[in-house]
Design a protein around this nucleic acid. Structure first.
Length: 424
RNA sequence: GUGGGUAUGGUGAAGUGGUUAACACGGCGGAUUGUGGCUCCGUUAUUCAUGGGUUCGAUCCCCAUUACUCACCCCA
């Protein structure tokens, strides 16, 4: 049996890779404009990091991690399912807090979750994300959101919805949680099975249940905004006013809840509805308790993660995927052994001068070589056969105009280089 | 983890219980000897995911497996 790639993974062939390159170029540009430096952490970490960082009761940790032990079986490792925990670990391990008041990092790379694959959902997927550590200023919440929106804008994506919410903090969330449980406890009969099981584990998740949230049961359910503490309330108001000041459109969705335990205060999500079930292109929020949870000094943080496969889907959906454009180049067409030897020398010289040059070398017919030259969109073809070799010249054919000229072998490389170099 | 759909050449995709499995694209070769893109011609699946069963006979029927896919769940 032929060996196939693992389920939920993808091979990116050159055509697709160039699309990724395009997206990454945008990412790097924006990050540099916002003053974010790239952090590269290991693809795998000690399993404990994710247990504590993401939360033991979350789905991600409970059923989606790729966990393994080494041959000695001493240590348990896990392929990173997201990168915030790793970034915070790196922040602490390198004692960045000791010399940098505010840290702004971004990352791009593969993440791993053992989900059932589906449109826009893969087991190895790629995220672009940012983290701001060391400030609880509401302006940084807005900055991070603005950054995500600018990323989508620059890609040309339209019709995105930005939803924001505040999920409270350890001071006010527990009370709200209790109220929610109390409210729904008597109405278990009317809830779907999933919600019943969520009721005690993570009652806030009930709020965005697709089935129950449409029912009457929800009438009169306690709203998070009525239960935020003073601090959270003010913070949320400020975030909104900063967004307005930057002319960023958003809607407040009191039922927006994030799935990872570490989120506090601000939570947000960017949706592109046409993608269907997996319409969240990105999301993020504040995680003021995470650094402490990982044994660091009390340090506030905020960040987002964007699913790049989904971004690509959205780009395809709006026909915004750039076509791969090949470089202007030259094809060296050779006939005969001696000519091929000389041709190889020409190709190498051209390449060393920074030109895109190719040849056949398989001894194919002239016609066949011409076809190939055409296929790779060569701008010039250098034709070299025994005849030309004896006369110490080469025929240079312009593939657009079909004009041909004879140039001496000594000058042909320099001449082509000149032709291919744009005039300043 | 749960439920639905689909599995035919490099790709897209017809099709039938029984000698030669359409078609399109792509690939390769050719259309006077050393010249591309257009056109034309030829060629390109001992075989219809894998394993089992029904049958005189299965790519077409049944079962299982696997993969892909969509939805639930979850999330990016």
């Amino acid at each position: 049996m032929a060996i196939k790639k693992p389920r939920g993974t993808q091979d990116f062939l050159p055509e697709t890779s160039s699309q990724w390159e395009y997206i990454e170029t945008k990412i790097r540009k924006i990050c540099s404009n916002y003053g974010f430096g790239e952090v590269r952490t290991p693809i795998f970490e000690e399993t404990r990091l994710f247990l504590r960082g993401i939360g033991e009761t979350t789905d991600v940790v409970q059923k989606e991690m790729y966990t393994f032990t080494t041959a000695e079986g001493k240590q348990s490792y896990t392929l990173r399912p997201e990168n915030t925990a790793s970034a915070v670990r790196a922040y602490l391990e390198n004692k960045v807090y000791g010399w940098e008041p505010v840290t702004k990092w971004f990352y791009v790379g593969p993440m791993f979750r053992h989900d059932r694959p589906q449109a826009g959902r893969y087991r190895q997927f790629h995220q672009f994300g940012v983290e701001v550590l060391g400030t609880d200023a509401s302006v940084s919440d807005s900055e991070v959101i603005a950054m995500a929106m600018q990323f989508f804008n620059e890609l040309g994506l339209k019709d995105l919805h930005l939803e924001i919410n505040s999920v409270g903090c350890p001071k006010c969330r527990p009370q709200y949680r209790e109220k929610l449980i109390a409210f729904f406890e008597g109405k278990k009969e009317e809830l779907c099975d999933d919600c019943v099981s969520r009721l005690y584990k993570n009652p806030m998740r009930l709020l965005d249940c697709k089935i129950d949230s449409k029912k009457d049961v929800f009438a009169g359910a306690p709203e998070i905004h009525e239960h935020l503490c003073e601090e959270c309330h003010i913070h949320f108001e400020q975030v909104q006013s900063f967004l307005k000041a930057a002319d960023i459109k958003f809607t407040v969705n009191p039922r927006l809840v994030r799935g990872l335990d570490y989120y506090t205060k601000t939570a947000f999500e960017i949706q592109y509805p046409p993608l269907g079930a997996q319409s969240a292109l990105g999301g993020g929020g504040r995680y003021d308790g995470l650094v402490e949870e990982l044994d660091g000094p009390p340090t506030p943080g905020i960040g987002f993660a964007i699913g790049l496969e989904r971004v690509l889907l959205a780009l395809e959906n709006q026909d915004l995927v750039p076509k791969r454009k090949s470089d202007e180049g030259v094809f060296v067409l050779t006939l005969g052994e001696e000519a091929t030897k000389k041709g190889f020398s020409l190709v190498q010289q051209l390449r060393q001068l920074g030109c895109y040059a190719e040849m056949d070398g398989q001894g194919k017919s002239m016609k066949s070589q011409m076809k190939y030259a055409n296929r790779i969109h060569a701008k010039y073809v250098i034709i070299l056969g025994d005849d030309e070799l004896h006369r110490q010249i080469a025929i240079v054919r312009n593939m657009e105009t079909a004009e041909q000229e004879e140039i001496s072998l000594e000058e042909v490389v320099a001449e082509i280089k000149r032709k291919l170099t744009p005039q300043m």
